[in-house]
Amino acid sequence: MNGVHSVADVIAMACLLLGALLCLTAGLGLLRFPDVLSRMHAGTKPQAVGVLLIMVGSALRLAGSSVVWMLLLVAVFQLITAPVSAHMIGRIAYRRRHVRRDRMLVDELGSGAGRPGGPQGDEPADGDARRGR
């Protein structure tokens, strides 16, 4: 088939391996981390660095073809849209109390102890710990 012929192919293989390793770590982090924000931290690794590495590897392998600009388009699009969706998911997660506030070091959005009412989300991540504060 298409073997490894040049230095560019070796670099492309290294990029593909690194990107796939990032995808595996994203799966591991999604499974093992405790709440939504830390799962987002793990799950968005392949969205930026992993996709960039894999696109660089693919562009090196497909160099000279006319689809390299499309790979560049995918990479740029990921870089633009990943912060937008992460911002929206993080904001909704904070408002619906899916965030474990006992694991936070700094809570810049919190307004202190005077928040009225208990948790009202569907699955509060720290139900009783917050109510007792």
Binding site: C23, Q47, S58, V74, Q78, H98
Partner: peptide, 23 residues
């Protein structure tokens, strides 16, 4: 929201797999 994050990561891994196949 956990499912949304997981679906997002899943689609990214699928597109990475397509790119790896193409490469």
């Amino acid at each position: 929201l956990d499912r949304v994050v997981a679906t997002d990561a899943l689609l990214v891994i699928i597109s990475a797999g397509l790119a790896v196949y193409a490469a």
